[in-house]
Design a protein around this nucleic acid. Structure first.
Lengths: 191, 191
DNA sequence: GTCTATACGAGGATAGAC
DNA sequence: GTCTATCCTCGTATAGAC
């Protein structure tokens, strides 16, 4: 139980940013939810830029671990694809989209170090998806046209976009499911 | 030439919001670019909420007109689809994504009146795309699975998501093209 | 590590002169 | 219609006591 204050701050900050965006989150918000004063946050993270940079880095590394676990599981490619999509759906149940999807929208106002973390996140995801698609093609389950790379990019775009669209629905998670699942079913089932 | 100040303010505000988001735009920004004082903006738009509401309404109506023009043109369904996609690409040349895509990310911090405008925008787009897809299916050009409605949702999601992803690339317009065009080609060509 | 106190700028908004 | 002047709140950040 090494649940220190720094982790608590990042947890709260992540909730706020995923829900409201980079420009609309403040030390005051964190202060209230963590239960310490604004000034105390600066002890753990000297500036807002540093805080967000650490936040995105942690998020990216966590996502990489989660994806690695999915990949090394015994699940079939189509099950892996569904597990991956579910990562996005789950956040929507609390009105949260992917941290990096939100920050991609805010890209123009981000400090350069954070911009680089975002780019790396999407690169990692694209590589992971490409690998999964390649496996499905090798197993003769799927047929990726015109290429696995192209299919991976298209899938990423659809998932990111579906989250955005789901935000403006009353039940975001349901809207996401209705949009994404039939498409995944049609393209990446193993029936 | 009835290019009054109110229109100038909205033009500038639109550029800023599409580039930086709702929370990161201010009266000071508009003031500088329009060449009037902050206080003068309040004469045209009493509050920030009113300004953004007028902005989204104008954007939605303009988009509806543009789409109507595409629909009533002599262009074939696949050409219409390309023209539609190009609307999104064009903004990226100035680092701008669809106003409503940006505001969908900021949805949680928007005043209710603006939220309703956003929802209406996406509804309008979805109806328009569904109509186009239905026409293509009627003409035996395309085959929409599992349904035209589903295909329309998926297309919207991909286009919105492709814009987001393109933001973090150096050349956003090029990244958008490389992601979207091959997919449109594969699905909605008339060859 | 967390606190109080404070600096300093930027935010939206209003009153009233011109 | 646009200006100056001003208000009040909130933003990040720092100094120094405990």
């Amino acid at each position: 139980m090494e649940n220190n204050t720094a982790k608590h701050i990042l947890d709260v900050a992540q909730d706020i940013v995923r829900n409201r965006g980079y420009s609309a989150f403040s030390y005051a918000d964190i202060s209230k939810q963590v239960g310490i004063r604004k000034a105390s946050i600066h002890y753990h993270f000297p500036s807002k830029d540093e805080l967000v940079r650490a936040l995105v880095k942690r998020y990216r590394e966590g996502m990489a671990r989660t994806c690695a676990q999915i990949a090394k599981s015994a699940a079939s490619p189509d099950q892996q694809m569904l597990q991956f999509a579910n990562l996005y759906r789950d956040g929507l149940e609390h009105n949260q989209i992917c941290l990096c999807a939100m920050l991609a929208a805010d890209f123009a106002v981000l400090p350069p170090a954070v911009q680089e973390e975002i780019q790396r996140f999407f690169r990692d995801i694209e590589v992971w998806l490409t690998t999964l698609l390649q496996q499905g093609c090798d197993d003769k389950l799927w047929d990726c046209q015109p290429s696995v790379e192209q299919e991976a990019k298209g899938l990423m775009a659809m998932l990111q976009g579906a989250q955005l669209l789901a935000r403006s629905s009353e039940d975001g998670a349901a809207a996401f499911e209705q949009l994404v699942y039939p498409i995944l079913e049609a393209k990446f089932s193993n029936a």
